[in-house]
Nucleic acid binder design. Structure first.
Lengths: 339, 339
DNA sequence: CTCTAAACTGTAATCGTTTACAGTTTGCCT
DNA sequence: AGGCAAACTGTAAACGATTACAGTTTAGAG
């Protein structure tokens, strides 16, 4: 492989100045004859402009950084795909940065964006401590946050009203005749956990169904293993006629547990998940789930970010996306009307 | 937010030269007194070295590019996590580039790596045409390929002998007494499809079991929907006492289909998947699966790449990783011995 | 106290682009 | 033809770091 071509070599080859070469590469305000010579030289030398040099000069990297706690989660993956779909036909590349865990790690990571390797940031913190809020606020890159915007954080935001999603789910269960509804949730220390918990309380009150602390289960996290472990210890779940799970993975664990005790899901008991991941149609019975529009949120976040980059001074915007209930086999009329 | 600090500002602030500042940032061969002054200035100004300038000068971007056909596939996601786990404590950032589909798109994408925005490339093409092979060979960045290495392509390679995986699966089925084994595969036009098909043929011959063309099913792709569609048309699957699926998603579709026809999976019929994704333990019955060690492959690929970057001239290496069979409920003794 | 080698520091060139500014060419109108 | 504006082109200075090289300081030995 030959020495990598530079713009100067192209210029010499084409018998024009470097400025002209640069101009035909971008913008192109050149006489056709010049342009042709330059293009020929570029083709011949296989020239590719060096992105670092360009980045240095024009002060933009053409990169967008994505920072999630956990790319492993299907919902985040779907968000990523949404983002990718809008970035795909822009100049921007996507750079990944699964900055898990600790506030400190996140803080460091956000700091290092100061190095200017990204023109924009899409972030979705799963918890929100004051330190994280401060770190976000001190950012100089255009940022959009997906999820619950912490107090006093001034960045663009796309969020879903998951409480409304819970409400949809509860209303549906009520409608098919369920009276005794349990909630299987992740930890209250997370944003989603807290909001969904509150949503459940409100929704139950709204439809005037009774519940108490014992009908709310907390798994150690949002995985199906967590649900499984939880239900191996606490075997009271079958007393309900419906189980609302705050994501699909938890629901999968719940279904497995119920089935292993010969409870017929979709007949003896209804189960609802959230996220409407691919998993829903893979399970048997297929899982009714609240679609939290992950892909859509990703798209909107990306669009918001692109606008923000174009126009850094406009006021932060906030977009809500509406959840949708997708009804499948795991919530069946019979389940509620049985008794 | 103040003007972004440069190394020159730090130098002035600390009363030393830019060279000294640069030296304490990396390498650090400075007198303690100097170092301290510089560090103080850096802290005070909140200085972060500009990565573009550094990249331009030292000719490395500290970025690794990942190019998969389809990040949506859980197996790729797991590979990504493996890669991430080793890159996590290096200076490298991971940049994503889901360059799906056409040879042309891939070619373009590989081309654009010439811009030098990545120091290394990890690629996993799902098909291998001569053009792709040529494009890979003409690459100037250190590259490692995960999957089947096309003929005459000279890059580092980590692959899994999926045929051996199939062999494990068939042997297991044979052992629990299955005689009539069907294969549910994706399209033969893909590398995995072709190799697994061949693996099945060989394995069946090896254990001296009969099969014919009708016992090999082809889904339009490797998704569960594809399996579902396939089995809605062709209702002959229950004639077998075991179904070997070339990935877990296909297996999920197969299980759903069988269960909808009241065939008891794990009792009337055994089902095996491949990839050993999370899905396996979410399904009911849980899915026996051939673990293709996606995370491990990702780790190895990343390690190989790091070595290659360090030592660009060494001969390409090839690492095989061994598949493992993970037995769960979907292949049960009873299924084979029933008849 | 002087000398010398070793350790450190500073100056300035450089990486490959973009772009302001000044200079040149072109084309059109009279 | 000549004049003028418009269109294009070239020169050279950035962008912000790294680093060769030369110059300076330091420390230890005699």
């Amino acid at each position: 492989m030959a020495q990598k071509a530079t713009i100067a070599m192209v210029a010499k080859h084409a018998g024009v100045s470097v400025a002209s070469v640069s101009r035909v590469i971008n913008g192109t305000l050149a006489r056709p004859a010049t342009e042709e010579k330059v293009r020929a030289a570029i083709a011949e030398l296989g020239f590719q402009p060096n992105s670092a040099a360009r980045a240095l000069k024009v002060r933009e990297s053409e990169q967008i950084c994505l920072s999630f706690a956990d790319i492993g989660n299907p919902a985040y993956l779907t968000i990523t795909q949404g983002i990718n779909s809008v970035l795909r036909d822009t100049k921007y590349r996507l750079i990944l940065s699964s900055s898990l865990g600790t506030a400190d790690e996140i803080h460091n990571h956000l700091q290092s964006l100061g190095r200017g390797y990204a023109d924009g940031l899409i972030i979705s913190p799963i918890t929100s401590t004051p330190e994280i809020a401060k770190a976000i606020n001190s950012l100089t890159v255009p940022t959009v946050l997906i999820g619950t915007l912490p107090k006093d954080v001034l960045v663009d935001n796309v969020y879903i009203d998951s409480a409304k999603g819970i409400e949809l789910a509860v209303a549906h269960l009520r409608e098919i005749g369920c009276k005794k509804i349990a909630l299987v949730n992740g930890p209250l220390s997370t944003n989603p956990g807290r909001r969904r918990h509150q949503g459940f309380v409100d929704a139950m009150n709204k439809v005037k169904l009774k519940y108490d602390d014992s009908s709310i289960y907390f798994a150690r996290d949002f995985t199906s293993q967590a649900a499984t472990e939880l239900l191996e210890k606490d075997k009271t779940l079958h007393r309900y006629d419906a189980v609302l799970c705050t994501n699909d993975l938890l629901a999968a664990g719940v279904i497995r547990n119920l089935q292993s005790r010969s409870v017929r899901v979709g007949e003896d008991i209804s189960v609802i998940g959230m996220d409407n991941t691919e998993l829903c149609t893979l399970l048997n019975p297929s899982l009714t789930s609240v679609d939290l529009r992950a892909e859509r949120r990703g798209q909107l976040a990306a669009e918001l970010l692109l606008e923000r980059i174009k126009n850094p001074l406009s006021a932060p915007r906030k977009i809500e996306v509406k959840p949708e209930l997708v009804i499948r086999e795991s919530t069946n009329m019979r389940a509620g009307t049985r008794k």
